Amino acid sequence: MDKENLSFKLCQNCQQEILLSNRFCNHCGKSQLEIDKQVHENKWLSLQQVALFFTIEVLCCASSFLIEENNLFTLYFLDAVMAISAIAFFGYSWIENKIILKWPNFSFLKLTWLIIATILTSVVVTFLVNHLNRDLLHKDLSYYSIFEFHKYGRYLMFASMALYPAIFEELAYRGYLMQKLLTVVDEKEAVYISSVLFFIIHFSFLSIFWLFPFALFLGYLRIKTKTIWYGVFVHFFFNLTACFLDLYPLEDLYKMIF
């Protein structure tokens, strides 16, 4: 029979080409039905783990809105729970996850340009968000308000609003979550799904115009560079710029300079 008229597939055990109709691999001898069943079970387990992880994330984020009076203790307690959750889930699948903690083909020039572009983007986004809040919600959004009573309020704000998300949100969403999704869907779908989930946990529909594209970019960066570290730096400098502009608004900086 002409080989061109036959349909082939790859054995999921040894990755050798076999006939689509074969129940056993003629190279390694593995049963294709057993392998397909195991693959299906592994995918279902990955989805269950993703669901459990995301449920914990949603409960923590929702709790901050349900608590009538937020304070630093509440903020750091919920941050700690989410950080521990991210580390625990990431560590549970350490063998498959540890590879993204490496930094292959590190480029200082690429990192520098990414940081510059991130800072400029954050300035524009902060300007637009402030105007939307004033025009639509008739209020000023301030990150510093919850920290200002503390002696080291500014440092605490930078740690909570810039450093913490850069490390633990990237570890959680572009790290653990995306690695799990890649065992179930392709790269493009993993980027979109992780970005949607990342947007949801922020509970801010008004932020969709920048937060969802930002998550998509971080996801793309993670897939393209095969590491979370570029995303960590981008996330950190984006939030750091927003915190700095919260302390020193653009209008005040303009008056100081001119």
Rank of each mutant, 00 (worst) to 15 (best):
E57Q: 15
W94G: 11
N71D: 14
A242P: 00
F127V: 02
L111H: 08
P213D: 06
S63W: 12
R154D: 06
S85Y: 09
Y176C: 11
P213F: 10
V123H: 00
S21N: 10
Y230F: 08
L19M: 13
M161N: 11
H235W: 14
L245N: 02
I167P: 07
T126A: 09
F24A: 10
G175W: 10
F244T: 06
L109Q: 05
T183C: 04
S7G: 00
H202D: 01
G153H: 10
L163W: 05
V129G: 01
L47D: 04
F233Q: 13
C28H: 11
G91E: 02
N13L: 06
L72F: 15
S7E: 00
E17K: 14
L177I: 08
F237A: 06
L10H: 03
Y176L: 10
L247F: 00
K188V: 01
V232I: 13
V124D: 06
Y152K: 08
I193W: 08
K98G: 08
I167G: 04
N239K: 13
M256R: 13
I223F: 07
L216D: 01
T118D: 09
L171N: 04
E68V: 11
V234Q: 13
S7Y: 01
V129W: 02
K3I: 06
E169H: 12
Y144D: 01
W44V: 14
H40A: 12
I223R: 08
